[in-house]
Design a protein around this nucleic acid. Sequence first.
DNA 1: CTATGTGCAAAAGGTTTGCTTCGCA
DNA 2: TGCGAAGCAAACCTTTTGCACATAG
Lengths: 136, 136
Amino acid sequence: MSNLEQRCVEAGLKMTGQRRVILRVLGIAEDHPSVEDVYDRAKALDSSISIATVYRTLSLLDEMELVVRHEFQEGYSRYEVNSEHHHHLVDLETGQVIEFQNEELEKLKEKIAHDLGYELIDHRLELYGKKLKSEK
Amino acid sequence: MSNLEQRCVEAGLKMTGQRRVILRVLGIAEDHPSVEDVYDRAKALDSSISIATVYRTLSLLDEMELVVRHEFQEGYSRYEVNSEHHHHLVDLETGQVIEFQNEELEKLKEKIAHDLGYELIDHRLELYGKKLKSEK
DNA sequence: CTATGTGCAAAAGGTTTGCTTCGCA
DNA sequence: TGCGAAGCAAACCTTTTGCACATAG
């Protein structure tokens, strides 16, 4: 049983065929798939899956924080398995999403929130850019 | 003629009654109104305005960069007049939006993008927090 | 006068939900 | 077997759009 499945069972979810497939799709994804993407990939493994189930499952996983939902100003959501904390840089020319971490940034966010009199619960940082012409 | 109106005329837009009203609503707003909010406020000044016009006008203003569109993960957009660059901290308990600026942050963003081989075109930073209990 | 803008209602696109049936525990 | 889960289609919500009429310049 995969780690994701394990955690679902522990949370009291029934491990249905559909959920197993969706978890598998998410587990092997190397990108940040949209609901439609997850649906298509899941359907390739089990053609009986409906998009309603994909939506319901992703919402559940999001609540359980097994997954992170992103909205990169595209009008729809994209998901990824919740692993290490990181941020995203979206390539405006290709749509490619690059992940990064930055310790200095983490500290700065905490400081800013605290200075404003707030406890930081969540945050979101996205960079949008174009690849620099590297003269090779 | 208000500054916003001025800039619209310069951009070649016809200054209709509806646009004047919408610009006025945006100009005096002290919050970050949703399209529905703008529509309601505009209707109070001119009951003939339709929501389609509000959407069309806000899109135009956004393209012209007279206005900034935000999506605070609420499922709809909010707008504000484009003034000084700043970021937002959303109070998770009240929905209140606090604006802030931070020079260190600006530099850090540029550096991160550059280190990843990108030219930073746009970015988005939102903090979500709860007010600290201040023992007064 | 005419290109641009508006109102209205319908359509679009993503997401949610009611209801019935299915199947895991 | 009983209750959570799935499939299907309709409903929802925000946003966009086609079309006929109105109006700024």
